[in-house]
Design a protein around this nucleic acid. Structure first.
Lengths: 316, 316
DNA sequence: CACCATTCTGCACGTTTGTGCACCACGGTT
DNA sequence: AACCGTGGTGCACAAACGTGCAGAATGGTG
């Protein structure tokens, strides 16, 4: 066979665009129906076929529409069983996010990503969609006192990179500096500025929110990034969670929180320069930080499971 | 049931985005599997679900890629059986065009359309996709010496209008004026200017090409729009076909063709102001005019069947 | 209230699609 | 040349899906 991929394309086109039965396609391609089934599956897996739903804002009333109009965002509410365990909710949200992302991201674009439990789940579900001239950039540092974070955040970013055939830009700094002065100093270094520059040109940012308290603890609070006294200070300040390692209060404010001077992620104000800012959230303990993030205006596209969404609306 | 459409959405989301079996979805929705099958079908029919293939330009070599790189366009080559009759080729191209169009067109956009056999076929395959604040505008007149053209072109445009819930703007002029002076005069009228103004703001233009000679004769030449002496002049000028009633020579030139002074459609130069210009073509006799249209640079997105595409490439 | 028309539902069945398996073709190794 | 691993194929069966049909729910009308 001269060109295998050509058949994948033809099969997909005939199947999805022209509603032909696999039987008929098989005859056309001089092969068996089973092979056509496999060709079509392949087309889906390699991201050649994109299946998407129109976002909530253009639809009738409902949870999604409510979120959309209340916050002025596009909301994707993922249906989940009524008492689904947190893990499953996370998994479904991650799957949906992965698909949406792969329909949005394309050649010559730059994707900025944070890291954490949610993002890691997203990366596991990414379909492969080869692009050209695109890049993936890490939005905040990952090193802490115990590890360089290279493996954890590195693998994560690499996952996005290979899914899209994108260049990857790592951000080799700790999640939090110990001294704000070090950050100031580093931010003047050209190696760091290069990464910051790529971040500023990002077309899409993908992140979740971190919760200070509750069920599945965010990496930020559990992996030795913060000292006990830091956490005590956060409590005192009324912090409910973070976006890209920048801490937020319940009302969405974040300036004058001391720790943010030492954080490496983009503050909401900077983040808002990215045209499309996708936030994927699942979990009861993330309701409060999610509301804070919405108030801070950092979200343009929200992917959230039904249960979390209804708690968000209810507790408003 | 409080909200029927909500279930359509949930079902589609679970089925397409989360790969759940209909059985499982049925349990969630407290209904039967058959109902879920119907919900999902409805989601497809109402355009809530969009299925699309990545265009040729980002893919490997092949007919589509060749067209894409030769002409700098996005090409969608529709696979058809080797000896498919012209009608079937047209039908398949129309189906694919209809789908693509409905993924591209959205709220607050303006769609300009020509008319003819091909466009009529496209309108038959349009899925319903309700939008808000959008409009459809007729690009060229349709009246001739025998009918006002209102029914033919009118129904066609209405079809697009209802598919998208869009306002429709008719263009109540003949396809060709008998005297160029009349056109000049009419173009100063405010009723006409209003339509021209909408045309100028179009985000997408949809048209085919007309062929002077051959198999399925274009409406333009067969429905009494032109007098025999007009056609003789066209032959003498070396005209191979038309785009929106503007005639083109094989090399894509069109100025100084007398008849174009009396045509009502936008000339290539004006047409090129529309950001996305979709051309749907099927049929051997349309190869020459298609090449002329490509040379004139009026096409950004081409939908064409495999056979026509290969003749285009071959005879270059 | 009774009536009809319309729409929706679940069932049962036939159709369409997915996949484990055995097999074959090919290129690289020993 | 014999060997082996990888990736592809068709078969046959199992799983998943679509749809005609008959009956239930809904919503006007007389």
């Amino acid at each position: 066979m001269v060109d295998r991929e050509q058949d994948v394309l033809r099969a997909a086109s005939m199947y999805y665009l022209q509603d032909m039965k696999m039987e008929a396609i098989a005859k056309h391609l001089h092969t068996s129906r089973s092979t056509v089934s496999r060709l079509v599956k392949r087309a889906r897996d390699t991201g050649l076929v994109e299946i998407s739903l129109r976002p909530a804002r253009s639809r009738g009333p409902g949870l999604g529409q409510h979120l959309a109009s209340t916050w002025g965002i596009d909301a994707y509410v993922v249906p989940v069983p009524d008492q689904a365990p947190q893990v499953e909710r996370l998994e479904q949200v991650a799957l949906t996010t992965a698909r949406l992302l792969s329909t949005w991201f394309d050649s010559n674009m730059i994707l900025g990503i944070a890291w954490g439990t949610t993002l890691s789940a997203v990366s596991r579900h990414l379909p492969r969609k080869p692009t050209r001239g695109s890049a993936v950039v890490q939005l905040n540092g990952a090193a802490n006192t115990r590890t360089s974070g290279v493996h954890y955040a590195g693998d994560l970013i690499a996952g996005f990179g290979t899914a899209f055939d994108a260049h990857v830009h790592h951000f080799p700094v700790p999640a939090f500096f110990d001294y704000a002065e070090t950050k100031q100093a580093m931010w003047r270094e050209r190696s760091v500025r290069r990464v910051l520059d790529v971040q500023h040109r990002a077309d899409i940012a993908l992140f979740s929110v971190g919760a200070v308290a509750g069920g599945v603890p965010s990496h930020v609070y559990s992996a030795g990034y913060l000292e006990p006294e830091d956490i005590a200070v956060l409590d005192a300040e009324g912090v409910v969670g973070d976006v890209c390692t920048v801490f937020l209060r319940a009302d969405g404010t974040y300036s004058d929180i001391a720790l943010n001077e030492r954080a490496t992620g983009p503050a909401p104000q900077e983040l808002r320069r990215v045209p499309r800012r996708v936030c994927a959230v699942a979990g009861d303990n993330k309701v409060a930080p999610l509301r804070a993030a919405l108030r801070a205006g950092v979200v343009t596209d929200l992917v959230v499971d039904e249960i979390t969404a209804s708690r968000l609306v209810a507790g408003a």
